[in-house]
Design a protein around this nucleic acid. Structure first.
Length: 458
RNA sequence: GUGAUUGUAGCUCAGCUGGUUAGAGCGCUGGUUUGUGGCACCAGAGGUCGCCGGUUCGAACCCGGUCUUUCACCCCA
């Protein structure tokens, strides 16, 4: 076999020790927060039956699904006539499994399969990778982690409140301050399409209007008229586009704008209630931005819609979610309403890296390295090692008998702040020499004293 | 899926209109220092120039394909 340069599949990454330390910092923060709010963890398999996945994400989504080739003779069911019918006829014969595309659909599947054992309302969180076969670019990977928290089986707007609170907590813990939680309600968008005389077309309206930030009002108008919206309808939208006030005045304005739409008013009422709950809870409206033109594409949202953007960075949204009335309907369980959202860890990582928010020193490093010169030191060192670990101090013994220089260099490279030197003097006096690599100071002391010093120094 | 873009040492990058043996800095290994890292000095290792093919007397350089990187569109975390 010839030697080959190893490489990674497009859009995937390794995470080395220093990256993992940072990722865990984010992951742990999110996990703690979910738990604090009473969510319980769920994990589902990386692969699902393809039939579970297909048809849930639209035509484009289906194309982005990774399909898993059947084991064994995967061609055995394929006949000539299938080949002539094209890919869509052949695919189900070749692959019956696929990699999960998000965490929401597997969750819905789980809820349906376990409906008799689940106590509703069910609050679950799930932190696992998902896979999408699209072209990688900035902040977009083919394998990435999602951190979902969903509540199913209740219409209560407390859930919306809790989502906002969790986002605020996570961001505060991560040290992110300049961000906005964009908030809207699908019912408001429905109302909007009714009021401008294009009722039932809020889907298309959303797709176009969602780009306002990116391409501007002019271009959005163009797109709308290309999609067949009348110029009169488009004209009616313009006061909405120019809305630029605080959340409450925006709500007031829309109350009159949407006066003729029952659905629209319902959306407003829901949002008002969420703001009310926020105040009752004792939290302010900082970082929360009612954004009338926020329109996340996913077709299943029916109520609140969220999206979180960090300002002044080149990464897109780092979190998003919303309420869906009938998540489990496609799997035969009707009437289960839910609301959920997701953090994109990989994007949060990129954002924090761009803003330089990670602490400088390695976050989970060994505290002390034990170095020695000979067999005697090796044995003495093992005893010391056991004492250190017993005291909860993260420590290691240099595995090979080698020069002091090499051992200390190792500690230095690994960012280990302390070295215990064990030579003949130390052994005969039953003591240790503790060297602080930062200051270079080395002192002879009892092991118990060293343990205390190491415990104190964070 | 569409349109661009990138690829030379472990890393960041030089490399002239195509011309002998492809360079630098950092890093790495060893030494100056057989009980001590960072600093300094000395020495050394390390490259199928992404891959395949073509043009040419001759290709890192030109052409085609392919993979990869990055970016935009679509869509999305």
């Amino acid at each position: 076999m010839s030697i080959q340069k190893p490489s990674l599949p497009k859009g995937t990454r390794d995470f080395g020790p220093s990256q993992m330390a940072k990722r865990n910092f984010i992951l742990d923060t999110i996990k703690d927060t979910f738990k604090l709010f009473g969510f319980q963890q769920l994990e589902t398999p990386s692969m699902e039956n393809l039939s579970t996945l297909t048809g849930k994400y639209g035509d484009e989504g289906d194309q982005l699904l990774y399909k898993i080739l059947n084991s064994g003779d995967f061609l055995k069911n394929v006949k000539e006539e299938h080949l002539q019918e094209g890919v869509s006829a052949v695919l189900p014969l070749l692959a019956e499994k696929g990699l999960r595309y998000d965490l929401t659909v597997p969750f819905a599947r789980y809820v349906v399969m376990n409906r008799n054992d689940i106590t509703f309302p069910f609050k679950r969180f799930q932190i696992q990778p998902v896979w999408r076969a699209d072209r990688p670019q900035k902040g977009r990977y083919r394998e990435f982690y999602q951190c979902d928290a969903d509540v199913v089986g209740t219409d209560s707007l407390i859930c919306e409140l809790e989502i906002i609170l969790m986002i605020k907590r996570v961001f505060a813990k991560l040290g992110l301050t300049d961000y906005s939680i964009k908030l809207n309600n699908r019912k408001i968008l429905t109302g909007l399409s009714e009021v401008i005389g294009e009722s039932g077309r809020e889907g298309e309206l959303c797709v176009a209007i969602d780009k306002l930030d990116k391409i501007g009002w002019e271009k959005v108008q163009e797109e709308l008229s290309q999609r067949g919206f009348s110029s009169a309808s488009i004209e009616k939208l313009s006061p909405i586009i120019q809305l630029n006030q605080n959340n409450l005045s925006k709500l007031e304005f829309l109350k009159s704008f949407l006066a003729s739409s029952e659905t629209g008013l319902k959306g407003i009422a829901e949002l008002e209630e969420v703001f009310g709950l926020l105040e009752t809870y004792g939290e302010n409206q900082s970082n929360i931005d009612f954004d009338v033109v926020l329109a996340r594409g996913l077709s299943y949202y029916t109520g609140a819609i969220f999206e979180v953007k960090v300002n002044n960075v080149s990464i897109g949204s780092v979190s998003g979610g919303g309420r869906y009335d009938n998540l489990t309907g496609v799997f035969g369980l009707e009437g289960v309403s839910g609301v959920g959202f997701s953090f994109g860890v990989d994007r949060l990582y990129d954002v924090m890296e761009e803003l330089g928010l990670f602490p400088e020193s390695n976050m989970d490093r060994t505290k002390v390295l034990i170095s020695y010169f000979d067999e005697k030191g090796y044995a003495y060192g093992l005893m010391v090692l056991s004492k250190l670990r017993g005291a909860g101090i993260s420590s290691e013994l240099y595995p090979d008998q080698t020069k002091m220089k090499k051992q200390i260099t190792y500690a230095d490279k690994k960012d280990i702040p302390f070295v215990l030197v064990l030579g003949d003097n130390e052994i005969s006096e039953r003591k240790v020499s503790l060297k602080d690599l930062k200051t270079g100071i080395q002192e002879l002391m009892d092991l118990s004293t060293a343990v205390e010093k190491l415990k104190q120094s964070l």
